[in-house]
Nucleic acid binder design. Structure first.
Lengths: 161, 161
DNA sequence: GTTAATATGACAAATTTTATCATATTAACA
DNA sequence: TGTTAATATGATAAAATTTGTCATATTAAC
């Protein structure tokens, strides 16, 4: 007997960054701020980063499938980073959850636009996409976590002074 | 008696480029390829650019309200460009239809994210947005129409040779 | 007044996103 | 071996957004 597993849940044809993607970013930044190999539960993360728990439970397996985190079932189970977060970028995370990002039907759906070959708007969209993917993969989530922490302290100091 | 007119139709809080936006681009590029002041009907445009007529009828008024085109009702009415298409960019058109573009809830919804002040992901989104708006306003729709036409000819020549 | 065009508002359909729940699975440990 | 505490999965619901249609109103030319 053969089993066909159809993986369509959440991982759809998104043109945009979804909430799920943003939650995943938060979750991963949290994990990397905890340190490599430190195990957390989904509840920990959802509380710390204000992510609806049940929704996070749908997102976590996607991060597992992409090899960004490892999850352990069972008592004393949990979630931890699968690899060096210095080498994980926001792009990795967003694509794990939202699938390949793109911006318009135009550059993604061959049936939608019959002028792909020459239409000059396509080049603009493609350039934007390249630039977007660049920026989303320039910093690791560690850098982001560290920078954010610094700014947070500055911010708090400013409030107190 | 006071009338409150609520303008929410289509013009919503979009994070993405909608189909409506892409159709609007097509329509405007068509108009600019026809020449300034040349009147077209909605049916002309919908046929030429394969846009569902009734949907286009919802989009056209948005382009009017933004002052990109002028529409005339009545017999021998129609649509024509309101200003020099050399000074109209894709950004003008997309924002006329989709409203201000942005990418994530994160940088747009104060309630969604309480870490706006310091979170380093925000800066990335903002940079991407700036870059995106830049690219979408670098070329006029005339330039785009001309470039596309050139490429189209090249493409046809290649097929025939 | 007839005709031919756009405008508007109500609404319907489709799609996508967000969210929840019940159940299954897994592993530690007493 | 059973209990407990964690994640995984699949069904489904709810909400939001986008796409599309229709009937009616408005407008202007002739």
């Amino acid at each position: 007997m053969t089993n066909f597993i159809i993986l369509t849940y959440i991982f759809l044809d998104t043109m945009q960054i979804t909430l799920a993607g943003e939650y995943a970013l938060r979750a991963m930044i949290f994990l990397s701020s905890q340190g490599v190999g430190v195990k957390c539960t989904i509840i920990d993360i959802s509380k710390a980063k204000r992510i609806p728990e049940m929704f996070l439970r749908k997102i976590i397996p996607l991060l597992c499938k992409s090899g960004l985190i490892i999850s352990k079932k069972g008592k004393s189970g949990g979630i931890f980073l699968a690899r060096d977060p210095n080498k994980i970028t926001p792009l990795d995370i967003l694509e794990a959850v939202d699938g390949p990002i793109y911006l318009t039907k135009c550059i993604n759906d061959k049936n939608f636009c019959q002028e792909v070959e020459w239409c000059s708007v396509h080049s603009i969209w493609n350039e934007i996409l390249v630039e977007m993917r660049n920026k989303l993969s320039q910093k690791s989530i560690v850098q982001i976590a560290v920078e954010s922490e610094k700014r947070k302290l500055l911010h708090i100091n400013k409030l107190n002074s």
